[in-house]
Amino acid sequence: MKKEDTVKLISAEGFEFVIDKEAAMVSQTIRNMLTSPGSFAEREHGEVTFPEISTTILEKICQYFYWSLQYASLHWHETNLIMIKESRFTYSSSLALASKSRGKETDFHIEPELTLELMMAANYLHT
């Protein structure tokens, strides 16, 4: 994995998560930080610190990024595009159906005790 293709996300306690840039871009907030013009420290070093987000939550967020890339994007993000081609759509919807038939394992499980903090972090990260 090349360094340019990854980002380091740092939690409130200082734990570092190195993840694919592509995954991190699931978050609109991180996407803005990494792509907006101007010299943000985040963009230069490929590092983002979240003093408000605890390690447990940040780990969950990272898991979600990957989960979202794998499953959710097919029927959430893609379908939000207005200019979608008909053939592509049927492909994605049939895939969504396929993932459905595999049942529970494709669900993103959230422990109830994490819901509040995770909700706030997700809200902040626009993900």
Binding site: Q28, I61, Y64, S68, A72, W76, F108, H109, I110, E111, P112, T115, L116, L118, M119, A122, N123, L125, H126, T127
Partner: peptide
């Protein structure tokens, strides 16, 4: 966001 609704759901 989507994760927010998943959290509310959970």
């Amino acid at each position: 966001s989507e994760l927010v609704s998943l959290c509310i759901e959970a």
